[in-house]
Computed example of a mutant assay.
Amino acid sequence: MSQVDNDKPVSSILSHLNITQKNQKEKTDNSLGQTAFLELMIAQMNHQDPLSPQDNTEFVAQLAQFSSVEGLERLNKNFEGFTNNFMSNQALQASSLVGTSVSVETDTTKLMEGGIVSGSALLESSTGGVAINIYNDKGSLVAQVPAGDQPRGEMVFRWDGQNMEVNGKLLKWRAEQPMPAGDYRFEVMGNQNGEQQQMQTALSANVNSVTMGADGKLTLNLAGIGAVNIADVKQFN
């Protein structure tokens, strides 16, 4: 597997891809190719029975088979070239993600030093008495932010460790002192249909590194969250 981070240049990823592709090619060199098929057909013609030579129909059939083998060989080479280019592009894209922020469905993330946690909660209906509860890595409640009544849809919030902004508006609530950098869990609660319910949340996280599998799939290693498939990313911030 290949991992892209701040200490590993893209060239090393591409070199790894070239080595992998070379090994794969060496494993398939034993297959019957165009040259081997032609040599086999010529050897067959040289050793045929002169009293019972190969008829024209059979010879034409072998020529057609030879053309098919040649066409398949060209198709395989073209496909290998396409795969090589695709994986190289994936490696370049992976390197550009390191150090950026993405949003995924989770309730836990890391507040970076001087950073901001962006989050969202999906409200299936108008919700009253919304509160955003924040817990530290020891499970202690460090902030309970009242967000009031919120309409149906996606509620977006931003937290810098002291101030909370909801749907683009800075709340009057403010923590007595800024929270230190570290891992935090977010819990969005609200009244829906007369019941207190917890809402599904998505949070931002910093991309520490990117791992590329042999199949070309990318896995993002996120601060405070861990490994996440790139297909599960909700938003690139």
Rank of each mutant, 00 (worst) to 15 (best):
I230R: 14
R174Y: 03
G224T: 10
A227Y: 15
Q235G: 11
I225C: 13
A223Y: 07
Q3T: 01
D137P: 10
W159N: 01
D49E: 08
E113V: 12
V104F: 12
N206E: 10
K169G: 12
M189Q: 08
S52H: 08
A227M: 15
K27Q: 04
Q48R: 06
L141I: 13
F79K: 09
A181D: 13
E58A: 06
V4F: 03
I132W: 03
W159Q: 03
R158L: 01
T211E: 14
V156S: 09
I19Q: 07
Y184L: 13
M164D: 00
A227T: 12
V69R: 05
L171K: 10
S11P: 01
R152I: 06
G129K: 04
S125T: 01
K8D: 02
L141K: 11
G190P: 10
G168Q: 08
N6W: 05
A143R: 03
E154Y: 03
Q150E: 09
A175H: 12
S118Y: 02
L141H: 10
D7Y: 05
S88R: 15
M189S: 04
V210P: 15
V102S: 06
V104I: 12
G33F: 00
E113R: 13
K27R: 07
F82G: 00
N84G: 08
N18A: 13
Q150L: 13
I134D: 08
S52T: 08
L122A: 11
G161A: 14
E187A: 05
K172L: 13
Q192S: 11
L17Y: 14
Q150W: 01
